[in-house]
Simulated scan of single mutants.
Amino acid sequence: MVKLRLDLYNAMTIDLVAVWDVPLQDGIHAVEFEHGTLTGKRVIRVDGKEILRKDWMFKLVGDETFIVNKILCVIKIEPQGLFNYSYSLIVDGQPLRSFTESQSKICCTWLVTLPPDGMYRIVLQKDTLDVWANGQQLEVT
């Protein structure tokens, strides 16, 4: 009986419903969203670090707003029938797909392997001419 209760508790605490990869100048950020459909619990993690937690909410739908590297992001929770929900990520006012497409137009990205240090991700932001290497903005001339 105790084992069944623990298994049920573990099943209820794992409410991961969406994972998105958000490409920004300083790298690709993983956004994870947990949504408890019984409790209304909402947890947002960026790159494995918890940035928002709401344990009990009576309203199961709505928006959650957060910031990733100075960029405003919104997770939209919308009903899709009885106890079914859709989740979408809005980044800088655009759906993730549109944001990713616009980023690919304004940024050039290279993956460079240099021994012995390994792999570097170099990003040139065309509109500002900022250069990033492995998430660190470089001072360039």
Rank of each mutant, 00 (worst) to 15 (best):
L89S: 02
T13K: 13
E139I: 15
D92M: 07
T13Q: 11
I122W: 05
A30H: 10
T37A: 00
V61S: 05
D15V: 01
P115L: 13
P23Y: 06
W56E: 11
P23L: 06
P79K: 02
S86A: 09
N69I: 04
K76L: 11
R121I: 08
T65P: 00
L72N: 12
S104G: 09
Q80S: 05
I71Q: 10
I106T: 12
Q80K: 08
G135D: 11
I14M: 04
G118C: 03
E32Q: 15
Q137E: 15
E78Q: 14
G27L: 12
C73S: 05
T109H: 02
M12G: 01
F33N: 03
Q103K: 10
I51Q: 10
E50A: 04
D117K: 15
I71A: 07
E139L: 13
L72M: 07
D127I: 04
T65L: 08
N69T: 13
I14N: 11
K105N: 04
D21Q: 14
Q103H: 08
D130V: 00
E50V: 15
M119I: 08
T113C: 09
L4I: 02
P116M: 04
D130Q: 05
T65V: 14
Y9C: 01
F33Y: 11
H29Q: 08
T100Y: 06
F66Q: 11
F33Q: 07
I44T: 11
I44R: 02
K126H: 11
Y85S: 00
P23H: 09
M12T: 09
D21P: 01
V123T: 15
K59M: 08
C108Y: 12
T113N: 10
P115F: 09
L96Q: 03
I106C: 14
D92L: 06
I67V: 15
V74D: 02
R53T: 15
L96D: 01
E101N: 02
P79A: 07
T128E: 08
K3T: 04
R45D: 01
D55E: 15
G62A: 13
V46G: 09
D26E: 11
E32A: 14
L89C: 05
T141N: 10
Y87K: 05
K3S: 07
C108E: 13
T13S: 07
K3L: 04
Q103P: 01
I51V: 15
Y87N: 11
V17P: 00
C107P: 02
D47Y: 05
G81A: 00
L60H: 14
Y85N: 00
P79R: 01
C73F: 05
E34I: 00
D7T: 06
E34T: 01
A30N: 13
L114I: 15
K59F: 03
Q94L: 13
E139S: 12
G62F: 05
D92E: 13
K126G: 01
V140G: 00
T65Q: 14
R121T: 13
L16P: 07
